[in-house]
Amino acid sequence: MNTFEGCPGSKMQDLRKKEETKGDESGKRESQLGQWPIQLHLVSPMAPYYQKRDVLLSADCVAYTVGDFHKDYLKGKSIAIACPKLDEGQDVYVEKIKSLIDDAKINTLTVMTMQVPCCAGLVAIARQALESAKRKIPIKSIVVSLQGDILSEDWV
């Protein structure tokens, strides 16, 4: 395999399953998304679906990785997505999250990121926003492996 050995965040890995997956594939799962838009540059902290809610700030790749993302993490929450590695204008992100805390008075913030080092930038953005906000709220950081397992779940 000709892998690119530089940044671990872009390193190629073949994660195809050797056997058929054993999970239950019967039935249909409903989407748990209750809003649009979702991208952090596009959303407004003033939107009614953020007011006093539990908000999930998810790195873009997370939803493709965690099999039960909708059922286990999105359900019951409002969401914003971003990529701390590739997105431009990340100072705007800090301001937006600060406004979610101070103006939308969100109840909690859960930050879901991938295990790759550059993804931790999203937690840093959230932390920076919390430090500059007047209100204080609980922030939880959940880190996901490339295989879709939860590696850690900690209060920031």
């Binding site: 909690t108 859960t110 709220i137 609980p138």
Partner: peptide, 8 residues
Amino acid sequence: LQQVGELF
């Protein structure tokens, strides 16, 4: 999670 936020 919701209760944790409320309590806080």
